[in-house]
Design a protein around this nucleic acid. Structure first.
Lengths: 234, 234
DNA sequence: GCAAAAGTGTTTTCATTACACCCATGC
DNA sequence: GCATGGGTGTAATGAAAACACTTTTGC
């Protein structure tokens, strides 16, 4: 077979919007870009799609290179293709967003990439259209978490209900009534109470919970209305 | 500036999943592919992204070539990038789905592309991964229409509540109680009752409604819970 | 004993569901 | 006058929201 004639071929990149939660705030993992153009500027972690790779493969590879993590929650966010988005050469980018347990991210912040977790509240200027990507990822996270139980992906295996509530409050930048909140999350049946308690953040201690993995898989795509009134999202 | 060295460039295509509604069933607009490979097989309408075009531009251009329509509801669905998806040459495809008023689609089905509206219930074999695209688009449509008032895009400017109900029933392949259905859609405040009636489908006639465009724009991204229990979607 | 966070219960309000009859018209 | 589809009301149920006090324990 021949090739399609007279058509322009383009570079295809992946960029990863990697979210973490440090117990208080939502964080974004960014790097200092290591090559021109825009070398030394803050950037999302990314790379080019290789000839034998699909997008998911490429995104997983890139995430692993940066964090050492595998099997992390990741989904395709959007394909960005403005003709001028990379001044060097026409490059399209398929953006993925990932949710990682920031605690499992042991590998110290790679010297090679100069990666850092920065708070979503104070994001520095990012190269190209990466700020658009981050904004869209944040909107998608809010949208999706209102309906599906994805925020657990940001927590360690064992977590407390107050921790979970702080996470939801960080994502929606609002406060929830703790009685209604705990009733709601427990009513999903997704949580299994543990015998031990977390004791660093209070004297009394808060019981740990784990996800019921069976139910979690089963309900992952159900409409759970996790957040009753998330406001005007898109 | 130079170019990025040692990276593979790829063809970038757009494919359009175009939905219509004929008053009874959901339809998909497909064409007979006009070039090799797979010439003469059923295919989605598509084309290559040009050097000076963004994805939205390209998708609009392609939709216009096929249907003559502009200003149609269209959103990016997903980027498909499996390394083997086009046997001829590595080609990635950014899929869009569009909702068109099938009645506004006057231009007779283009001879050049041999386009046809086919029922979603009996889709023929499509080339490449186009069936995956259609399935994903249908899932997205159900997902989104459960929460946002997008199905109006499939109807003419003036429509009746029974027509609207048939549309929702087609999308979700289920039946709704007409009293609850009409109360629910009217409670959104999005509909403006007209003075005239549609008289072809019943003797008594059903009042026409139009969208309140102001409120429609304002509420487009709100969570409306248009369909209370859409079941297990993804 | 007191400060700090965890945990729990009740009432009200609102949305959703289930369900049945009358209306207008063409034939 | 009857068949066809259009249009409406009500009662019961379930989910969400508002709201305050008791418990535990380290200091």
């Amino acid at each position: 077979m021949t090739r399609y004639s007279r058509q322009t071929r383009m570079l295809v990149a992946i960029d990863c919007i990697i979210f973490g939660f440090d117990g208080q705030d939502l964080k974004l993992l960014v790097i200092k870009r290591g090559f021109e153009p825009e070398k030394g500027k803050w950037s999302l972690m990314g790379g080019f799609v290789q000839p034998d790779e699909g997008f998911d493969d490429a995104a997983s590879r890139i995430l692993k290179v940066l964090t050492g993590l595998e099997g992390v929650y990741m989904e395709q966010l959007f394909a960005f293709g403005g003709p001028e988005r990379d001044p060097m050469e026409r490059t399209i980018s398929v953006a993925f967003f990932a949710l990682v347990d920031i605690n499992a991210y042991k590998q110290q912040l790679s010297e090679e990439y100069r990666a850092e977790w920065i708070s979503l509240k104070k994001i520095p200027r990012l190269i190209f259209d990466h700020a658009d990507m981050v904004n869209m990822a944040q909107a998608r996270l809010r949208y999706k978490a209102a309906i599906h139980p994805i925020l657990f992906e940001l927590l360690p295996q064992k977590f407390t209900i107050p921790q979970l509530q702080i996470l939801y409050e960080a994502v929606y930048d609002t406060m929830f009534d703790k009685r209604n909140f705990s009733r709601k999350v427990l009513s999903t049946g997704l949580l299994v109470k543990q015998k031990d308690k977390e004791r660093t953040s209070s004297k009394r201690g808060a019981f740990y919970y784990k996800l019921d993995k069976r139910k979690y898989s089963a309900k992952f795509n159900a409409f759970l209305n996790f957040v009753a009134d998330p406001g005007n999202l898109k």
